[in-house]
Design a protein around this nucleic acid. Structure first.
Length: 243
DNA sequence: CCGGTTGTTCAGCG
DNA sequence: GCGCTGAACAACCG
């Protein structure tokens, strides 16, 4: 159930397995998991919501999607999609998408599109947004080619912070406001990361799952908006619509 | 027990 | 052969 910051936390938690050899592999994934047996983990990477386990000439891509979960040095009472055993410890993933990536990661991933990556490039995001003439703001933030790692919570919080209505048309948003939106997508993602680590994420939500706008003290609107009909929480008064 | 969901992929359509 | 859309998938919480 993760957005980008949660995947970054996962990466931090599994650091003890870097350099360790996999002595046993199990799981109900349809791909040939036994390829991983006796392989040594070189490093873990993330790109947006994707978790990457890097081996020599091979990478495992894990996406937890909406319902995925993991356990470190423990297991659930069901067969994992992918379970890795080490001499000391284990790593289990459930209900996730597992794929092999054979290509060089630098050719597969544009690291500058990941809001949490040090290589994040706001100018490139701005250029991509200018290309998408009729896109709605709520769809833009969820577009992983532009804002890899941003999910529905971050989307709602960012739009509320920068006072932009989710159904605003990207090309109609003044450039000053658009740059603010881009900036806030990164700022909020890092705050999300810290709050999640401190187990205080929910209490900082100002829009997501909220009933009332704190700025105007009126009820939020709640609707499934945009191309993918994802739930949006927004205030008709303080969030300006650009159409 | 039902409704709802921190997400993506792909078939099928125009 | 595109771009777009909706269905399918899945487990857990309240």
């Amino acid at each position: 159930m993760p957005e980008g910051p949660s995947i970054l936390i996962l990466k931090e938690l599994v650091q003890p397995f870097v350099g360790k050899k996999i002595i046993e592999v199990k799981g109900n994934s349809k791909i040939d998991l036994q390829r991983l047996k006796n392989q040594e983990i070189i490093e873990f990477k993330t790109w947006g919501k994707q978790f990457l386990i890097c081996f020599k000439n091979l990478t495992v891509r894990i996406h937890l999607l909406m319902f995925g979960s993991y356990r470190i040095n423990e297991s659930k009472d069901v067969v994992p999609r992918l379970g890795l055993k080490f001499k000391k410890g284990e790593l289990n993933f459930y209900n996730c998408s597992v794929r092999f990536i054979e290509e060089d990661l630098d050719t597969v991933y544009d690291w500058s599109a990941d809001v949490l990556n040090p290589l994040w490039n706001a100018k490139k995001a701005e250029a991509k947004l200018k290309d998408k003439k009729n896109m709605l703001a709520c769809d833009a933030l969820l577009d992983q080619d532009i804002f890899a790692g941003v999910g529905n919570i971050i989307k709602n919080e960012v739009l509320y912070r920068v006072k932009i209505h989710p159904e605003s048309i990207v090309s109609k948003i003044p450039i000053r406001q658009l740059r603010l939106l881009i900036k806030e997508a990164v700022v909020y993602s890092f705050e999300f990361l810290q709050w999640k680590k401190d187990f205080v994420l929910k209490k900082h939500w100002l829009a997501y799952n909220q009933k009332t706008c704190r700025r105007d003290n009126i009820p939020f609107n709640r609707a499934n908006l945009g191309r993918t009909h994802r739930r949006s929480f927004y205030c008709n008064k303080c969030q300006k619509i650009y159409v």
